[in-house]
Design a protein around this nucleic acid. Sequence first.
DNA 1: GTCTATACCCGGATAGAC
DNA 2: GTCTATCCGGGTATAGAC
Lengths: 190, 190
Amino acid sequence: MPARTNKREQILQAAVLSFGEVGFNSSSLREIAARCGVSHPGLLHHFPSKEALLTAVLEHRDTDERRWFPRSESGLDVLRNLIKLVEHNVTVPGLIGLYVLTAAEATNPAHPAHDYFQRRYARLRRDTRRALHRIRDEGDLHAGVDVEDAATMINALVDGLQVQWLLAPAEVDMPTILRRHLQSLVTRKL
Amino acid sequence: MPARTNKREQILQAAVLSFGEVGFNSSSLREIAARCGVSHPGLLHHFPSKEALLTAVLEHRDTDERRWFPRSESGLDVLRNLIKLVEHNVTVPGLIGLYVLTAAEATNPAHPAHDYFQRRYARLRRDTRRALHRIRDEGDLHAGVDVEDAATMINALVDGLQVQWLLAPAEVDMPTILRRHLQSLVTRKL
DNA sequence: GTCTATACCCGGATAGAC
DNA sequence: GTCTATCCGGGTATAGAC
């Protein structure tokens, strides 16, 4: 293995910043390279194409995200961890900008990350449904909650809050609003 | 006045399509011009710059949107009209793509539409708060509804649903999910 | 009003030296 | 591994003919 290659990591972080600010489409490899003190072909040595860089950024983000949802917890703990994740997110606005903008771009079927985001949202809805079913099995879900709708709604709420929060951080309290909504679904304290 | 200039309208529609597909940043004036059978400088004759075109598109969209919210209605009717607007929106995915993507891009303070979207969301929250207060005054709001949070939430829900719907139209029923959420806030049938 | 032609810049990607 | 140099396409915008 190479002595100690943290250049990849530096490039990834610079890419997160750039993608978050102007999106994947408008980001330039030259600009990203300049941010971490490497030349444009130097960057392409580590990531063979711009699309490969995007893929690496998204996978990196996924890995980070999964750490917030360890296994063997109660259904309620999944919701609690989601709140914790959002509480963490307000400390990394660049990453949120990256996510919001890339997801919006990727609604276009021609975007290189289109399939990734289709699969991602299908998975998010499925995971949220599972958590809600588990909460119901544990007797903690309010009667009358439609699990299918609630799962779609929770993920929509998180996404929509991010846009408003990025535009007006002082006026939109993401974690609190999310917590109150989730609390309205369950009978026990979150 | 000119004999009959609908070229502006044609260009606006082509711009909506292009902005909706790849966003403002990645759209090209040449491509937009080609869509409506005009040359690139021909387009610039009607709109002096790309940014002017974006402004015109957003104002055009605003005007259309306002038509869904006539005055002198009850608070509940505002929510009913919001549902009708979303029911209409599912018939114009290009416009929704434009909106989602432009809003995401505009979270960047350097984006030409940043101020527009900051003002827009402040206004949306204010208008939604007013409608909810009116519903409360009319005795139709459920007890325990926090108007401030509910207003932010409703707008976040609409935005977030759009992303999921664009990625999976068959799996996300925007109008129904919105209606059920709004119904959960009020005591009378929507 | 709408065109052709063009100026000028920046994008992704590659070749090849060190 | 990282560089310089370069290719080629495409971006906004302008000048000037018709």
